[in-house]
Design a protein around this nucleic acid. Structure first.
Lengths: 175, 175
DNA sequence: CAGAATACGTCAATAGTGCTGACTTAATTG
DNA sequence: CAATTAAGTCAGCACTATTGACGTATTCTG
């Protein structure tokens, strides 16, 4: 009696529709969109022996130079052990440098090097092009609407942090 | 001379802005949004000893009952070997059943069981709630705009398939 | 100032998801 | 009947993530 087959294995032949109050269409599109969105940088990263995690670290270090390790862990929401290898590789390959924190010398401030900046830009370029293209193709919507939608998809706690972030507050001024 | 440190490790202290023609804001928001979007089902799946891959298989089998294994591999864009473990577990736990293809007996048509249908609905419910909430919070945009944007983010080949899919063509009629 | 707490780094083991390559079986096609 | 196709499976590997434990340097606190 290894498997607990309860016997009720009658096939359901009807497709789930967007009935049941569930928007399967958007759920599915969100999956496809994100998968293709990450595919361009993923391919480039392979040339460096890097993975998606390296991209994320590189992204946030470029967005917020001087980030401490603890702060980086907090935005990525991964553990110190998960970050360790990835960060070490980026440091060993001169994409990121660590500086001792000026106030608290236990802290390590993370900065991109010129190489790290270039790679971050190169990885983001196809993603930004894809977004720009999609914004153009879209009718009856604006970049602002997309930004609001995506921000509203984020958990409230993080959303509060994003709103407090000057990098995102600047958005209010641009169109 | 193990590492090839070229020595140019000067820290760059300026944050990348949305200059350089790259929309870092939306890139970042897309990452946060997708991560939180997947977090709800991920937590539920843990109770079953399942992962995100199980959810995807379950989703598409419920969306298109009678899918063959080859068709499933095509939408997921993973290899047969990657699918094998996940699919086997879903079959062993009576979430999915395989029926021999009526025309071609080599094919295995995949159908959800009642249990599989229920789980798919349960997993999608929080995702749909999140989407609905975000659509409501968003000003100056419509569900239609979001659908168009997400579809435009998808690679052209797949986009063509999606447009040919009756499940998505039905969208044109609803508002 | 001594002890607790914090920031970071690291070791070891494990899980989930993906990959490549190779091979088998059964069924269909030419 | 031979070739191809659909599916399943075996072995090995890579990447990202996890938990738990421990060491070191530094700062904070009573």
């Amino acid at each position: 009696m290894l498997k607990e087959k309860n016997g009720d294995v009658a096939p359901i032949r009807a497709a789930v529709a967007n009935e049941d109050g569930i928007d399967f269409t958007l759920i599915e599109l969100f999956f496809f969109a994100y998968r293709d969105f990450t595919s361009d940088p993923d391919q480039m990263l392979a040339d460096y022996g890097f993975g998606r995690a390296h991209h994320r670290v590189l992204h946030f270090v470029n967005r917020r130079p001087g980030l401490t390790v603890a702060e980086l862990l907090d935005v990525l929401k991964i553990t110190k052990q998960s970050l360790a290898r990835v960060l070490k590789q980026l440091i060993d390959t001169d994409h990121i440098v660590q500086l001792q924190g000026p106030r608290d010398r236990r802290q390590r401030e993370l900065y991109p090097t010129a190489r790290g900046r270039e790679l971050a830009l190169a990885l983001s370029r196809p993603q930004s092009r894809r977004i720009d293209g999609a914004l153009t193709e879209m009718e009856g919507g604006s970049r602002k609407a997309i930004e609001q939608f995506l921000k509203a998809m984020v958990n409230p706690e993080l959303r509060a942090q994003i709103d407090a972030d000057p990098l995102h507050r600047m958005e209010e001024n641009q169109e």
